[in-house]
Each structure stands twice: as structure tokens, then as C-alpha cells.
Write a protein that binds this DNA or RNA. Structure first.
Lengths: 229, 229
DNA sequence: ATTATCTATAGATCTATAGATAATGC
DNA sequence: ATTATCTATAGATCTATAGATAATGC
């Protein structure tokens, strides 16, 4: 009884202990922030979820916002780098003739695979990003971490659509990212609307449809569409 | 000086006063909630913006969540009814042959026109909805107020796409609403990404592109797309 | 000797309620 | 006489800091 929780306490080095605690804190914060946003989560909530005292969060992070930013930053580089590399490979393969659908498949599917393969923690990160993207405190973070990968996609799309006005390509991306964030958010609304036919958690189903859908949408913007904008 | 603010105080009836104060409170709350979400706004913030004492909010509303729900409900019926009627008219006109693009034009453009015509307060409501749609406390509100109008759209789309599996239509709607909410949110991200070429506030530009884009996307889902989902 | 974690607590807010005051209503 | 608004305040949190204790490091 008095040794109930010693199973794991096989004596860790300080570096290990630090890394482990940090990861637990970030996981808990990621989960809670993804559900309730920056202001909907207290440091106490996070600490309780980890099973640690609130003040420990101040030992590892300056303040609440720093924790929030650290959650964002932890996985941002992984997803960004993966997509950057995948798009570079695609560009090499496609040579002078990249296609809209090809570019979107690489951009979207590479990311979906990440979440599908690695499961809940990464799905939570996706949900976290969806919330952040909607938020004043998140705007700068999105710009900072994801501008390069987005602009890379845009540059391939431009080559695939040389005659299309740039605005149209940007608006197309605006639709793509909106749909993507709505997927990441996993609100459950599509489950209820469809009577269970579709499930918010079913990223494979979205992956199977999204690139084709968005490519067709972008291509449809060719030709006139009023003079507005 | 001592009568500085009497210009408007032309003696109002209590009902008028009540209505006016209520509207000011809802406007202020709508604006603030749209920016910072339920938890990112205090009753004090709202009261200060109106220029009234915090406790007055408790006189008009049970608690903070009631105020939040009242903000949602105030304009929900207007946008829902407008779209319902527009879709009914479209169905009457189109008879046996509604089109995907026609249905989406009615659903989307009718709403965009509302925000474009009536300006900032309604644009704030749209931003408020975008935030709510992403939020646990908002899920039930979205269902309650917007299920009928969405299911109406879905039913027209089904008639326009009789051979398409229902899931595909629901996933198509999922993309549409994601893009729509991203527009409503007006985060400014597309402005920065595009170097000012596109503007988050430019609903006419989105209106000019969105229905065509989404219709093409939906139509592209016809035919095989793997067996996933 | 250093680092990780906890105890104690200050100071600021926040929501909400009770009850007083100042308007309009008849 | 009723309704709208404000004053005063309770009680609960919340963030953050200072300083104590309990581990690991050499």
C-alpha cells in the first residue's frame, strides 16, 4: 500500500525527470486548451490533471501564456517540417508540371497521416490548433509557425495555375484551411447532423475526400466571377 | 456641462429604456465574446463597454452563460428564417431540378448579403458564431438554432445529387461550413499571408467565389474515393 | 550542491447577492 | 407602485512569488 505507486519510480536521472514532467504538463495543457481555450483553463486545472502542485507550472514556465505558446511550439516544427519535405519531394517528382490536386494531396494527406498514425495526443494538438487559429492570441503563433509551409503550398499552386489571379489562389487556400480547421476541431456537429453517418474523429474519411474536393473547387474559380474583390 | 449627456435623454418610457439598455448590453457582449470567447470576457468588461454597473447585467440576465446564450439567440432566428425562406423560394423555382451550385448560392449568398447590408453589428455576430462553433458550450447552441436550415440545405443537395452517398454530402457540408466559419472569424490571417491582396473583411469577395468553389468540390466527390469511411 | 517539488500566502479579479436610491407609471 | 440602476460586500478563484523540503549529482 505505502509503495503503491513505486512501480514506475525506478530512479530517474534529473534530466529524465524534468523531460517527463514537462511532457506530462504539456500533454495536459494541450488537452485542456484544445477543449476550453486559453481563458477556459486554469493553471490549477492543468496541475490537477498532471497530479502535481500548481506552482510547479511556474517553475517550468514563466506564466500561463508561455505554457500556451510552448504547447503550440512543441509539435509545430514536426508537422511543418514533414509537410515541407513532402512538398519538396513532390516538386522534384512533378518537375515542371505540378497539379493542384497533387499539391493538395501532399499538403493535406501528409498531415492527416501524422494524426492518424500517432493517435490521440496528436489529434489533441490538431484540435488545439483549430482553436488557436480562431483566437486573437493565436494569430501571431499561426503566422510564426505555419507561414512557411503555407506559402510553399501557395507557390506550388501558383505554378499549377499560372493564369489564375493570385487572389483566387489565396481565397482558395482560405477555404481549404477553414475546412481543415473544422476537421481538426472535432466538434461532433457533423456526427449529430448526419445521424451518426459521419464521425468527427474519422480523419481517414476526410483525407479520402478533401484534396479532390478542394482541387475541384480551386479549378472552378478559373474564368470570370464578378469584379468584386 | 452638467447637462452634457442630456441630448438623448428626451424622457423615455420604461419599455423603451429597457429595450435600449438590453440592446446595448447584447451589442457589447457580442463584440467582446466574438473576440475573446465566453471565458475571455468578464461581466465587468461588458458593463464597462456599455458604461453601466456590472450588477445591472445580473438584473437583466441570470448569469454569464445566459447572457452568452441570449447573444446567440438574438440574431439566430433572423439569419435562419431568411435562409429558410430563400431556400423555399429556390425550391419552388427550381422545381424538380435543383442544382448544387444553385442551392449553395441561396444558402451562402443570402447570409453574406445580410452581413454586407447591415454592417458591423452583424459582422460581429458572424464572428461570434464562428467562435461559438468551435467551442464545447457552443455545440448545443449551433444544433438548436441552425440544424433546421442546414438540414434544409442538405435535403436540396440530396435531390440535386440523387446518386451520391449521403456521407459524401455531409462531408461536403462539413467543408462548406468550415470555410464559412473561417470567413466569419475574420482573423486577418489571409490578409497577412497574401500581403494585403485579400482582406478578411471582404465578404463580397468571398461571396463571389464560395458557392462556385464548393459546388465544384461536391460534384468532384462523385465516383470512387477509396473505401475509407 | 543543484534541481525538482511543495507549503504558505499576497494581491487581484470575478461572479453573484442583498439592499439602497433614483427614475417612470398611474 | 413599480422598475431601472447603483452601492456595498461576500465568497470563491486565480495567478504569481517567496521560501521550505526532498530528491539527485559529484
Amino acid at each position: 500500500m505505502s509503495e503503491g505507486s513505486t512501480a514506475k519510480r525506478v530512479r530517474r536521472t534529473k534530466a529524465e525527470q524534468r523531460a517527463e514532467t514537462l511532457e506530462q504538463i504539456l500533454d495536459a495543457a494541450e488537452y485542456l486548451f484544445s477543449k476550453n481555450g486559453l481563458h477556459g483553463v486554469t493553471l490549477r486545472d492543468v496541475a490537477q490533471r498532471v497530479g502535481v502542485h500548481t506552482t510547479l507550472l511556474h517553475y517550468y514556465f514563466d506564466d500561463k501564456l508561455s505554457l500556451f505558446e510552448a504547447v503550440f511550439a512543441r509539435r509545430a516544427k514536426v508537422t511543418s517540417d514533414r509537410r515541407m519535405e513532402a512538398m519538396a519531394r513532390y516538386e522534384a517528382e512533378a518537375g515542371d508540371e505540378p497539379t493542384v490536386e497533387g499539391a493538395l494531396h501532399v499538403f493535406l494527406d501528409t498531415d492527416f497521416d501524422l494524426y492518424i498514425e500517432r493517435g490521440e495526443p496528436w489529434m489533441n494538438y490538431a484540435a488545439f490548433c483549430a482553436r488557436v487559429s480562431n483566437t486573437p492570441e493565436g494569430a501571431a503563433l499561426m503566422d510564426e509557425h505555419f507561414d512557411p509551409v503555407v506559402l510553399k503550398l501557395i507557390s506550388i499552386l501558383k505554378r499549377a495555375l499560372p493564369e489564375m489571379p493570385e487572389e483566387d489562389i489565396f481565397w482558395g487556400y482560405h477555404f481549404v484551411t477553414g475546412a481543415l480547421m473544422n476537421t481538426f476541431a472535432r466538434t461532433g456537429r457533423i456526427d449529430r447532423l448526419s445521424g451518426g453517418l459521419c464521425k468527427s474523429d474519422d480523419f481517414p474519411a476526410v483525407k479520402a475526400r478533401m484534396a479532390k474536393f478542394m482541387a475541384a473547387g480551386l479549378l472552378a474559380l478559373r474564368g470570370e466571377h464578378g469584379s468584386t474583390g
